[in-house]
Design a protein around this nucleic acid. Structure first.
Lengths: 228, 228
DNA sequence: GTCTATACGATGATAGAC
DNA sequence: GTCTATCATCGTATAGAC
């Protein structure tokens, strides 16, 4: 259905039309959502022909993914940077679990604080995960492959003695807490009756790190005790 | 855009057409997803006229919500049942945090194990939360209002001394871990390279309870120490 | 290789007769 | 309450100009 390769090929030279499309699409998606934004709106806004979408991208869904991947790339690069710094700072010992979590979570919260419409991303991924076709399984490794590999190792090192499968569960739950915060900020407002400030990035990061670090440690400890 | 009241009004007497629509929609949505299921498929399958959808429900989105709400109701009822039992069992002391979490999480995992297509629900809610219009803010309290109120009290009692806003953060993160597990099971497969068994409901419940209980306790402790 | 003009089939929604 | 008929709009595909 979607040629996943085309999503990653650089524009090479000028690539005016393609970039104009991505820019217009990004702006309109953030403002009105995916479904409410028609390809005709996008192409009119970009000043290009409707058919250009099907030339540069194959489908609307592919265009959405291209927009998201373009936004996600710097976040993942920053994650790897922070992990590099963390590992360089403590060459002898293993990095702390809190440090690894901070390297993983901070770039996302920074991007949200910078005004990026990240709420759309978990939504789209969530929709895609369970959609028939399952081409996402080849896409995710390409976008998150390096990040996931590096961080899995780092998490395992920060949780000595943990079974790899339990580390995976922990990462999954941690991503869930983060993704839900990004996607459903309004729910936090409802639960806390307006008392919680979701725009407080530093506070959110701290809470996420404390919550997930403690959760992961407890899960690992549980299985270690059950085994021993 | 959507008259939220109509989603909750009982069919009253027979209501054949409305129920036939809900049944057909539920089956087709679970099989093909929301977007891929057209109203014409649904009405043909239900043996009713196309316009019946717009008469009984106003829009496709409203029909989707009605289907989900109908499935969600028994889950929330079971949650309250389990919480009642828990509170009756230990009248004198406060219920344990793990017990409250189990009452909240178990009915969802049971429903998933029974074959319910729950993955669609976090997806839809996620999409709606950030959609313009924000009518969901009136809808959520109606569906989750009683559950949220009862469990907020129970969580606060199980976390003595915790600031209410921190309890809200904890609930939010816990819901995130649960919702992400429901919506993105394939991601867990990828992270664990197939080692994690997401169909193991008992194991998942146990992991979720341990993870979220420990996370909530640590978050509350952090703010208590900061305050004291 | 890029881009445009144009058309197609299907969709969600509505108006008005019964 | 239920139907038929009809609407504007959508995503997509193709043929052909630069």
């Amino acid at each position: 259905m979607i040629d996943s390769d085309s999503l990653f090929t650089s524009t090479g030279g000028t690539g005016v039309t393609k970039d104009r499309l991505l820019d217009a699409a990004e702006r309109l998606f953030a403002e009105h959502g995916f479904q409410a934004t028609s390809l005709r709106h996008i192409t009119a806004d970009a000043g290009v022909n409707l058919a250009a979408v099907n030339y540069h991208f194959q489908s609307k869904e592919s265009l959405i993914l291209a927009v998201l991947i373009r936004k996600l790339e710097p976040i993942n690069r920053r994650r790897l940077e922070l992990l590099d710094e963390l590992e360089a700072r403590q060459r002898d010992s293993a990095p702390s679990l809190e440090g690894v979590l901070r390297a993983f979570l901070q770039p996302v919260l920074e991007a949200k604080a910078a005004g990026m419409e990240l709420a759309t991303f978990p939504r789209l991924l969530g929709r895609i995960y369970t959609e028939p076709g399952a081409w996402i399984e080849k896409l995710i490794p390409k976008v998150f492959g390096e990040v996931m590999g590096r961080f899995k190792t780092a998490f395992a090192a920060a949780l000595p003695g943990a079974e790899p499968v339990e580390v995976a569960w922990g990462i999954h739950f941690a991503i869930g807490s983060m993704a839900h915060f990004l996607a459903a900020g309004k729910l936090l407002e409802l639960i806390s009756q307006g008392a919680a400030d979701e725009s407080d990035s530093a506070g959110t990061l701290e809470r996420l790190v404390v919550f997930t670090a403690s959760g992961m440690r407890a899960m690992v400890l549980r299985t270690k005790e059950a085994a021993g």
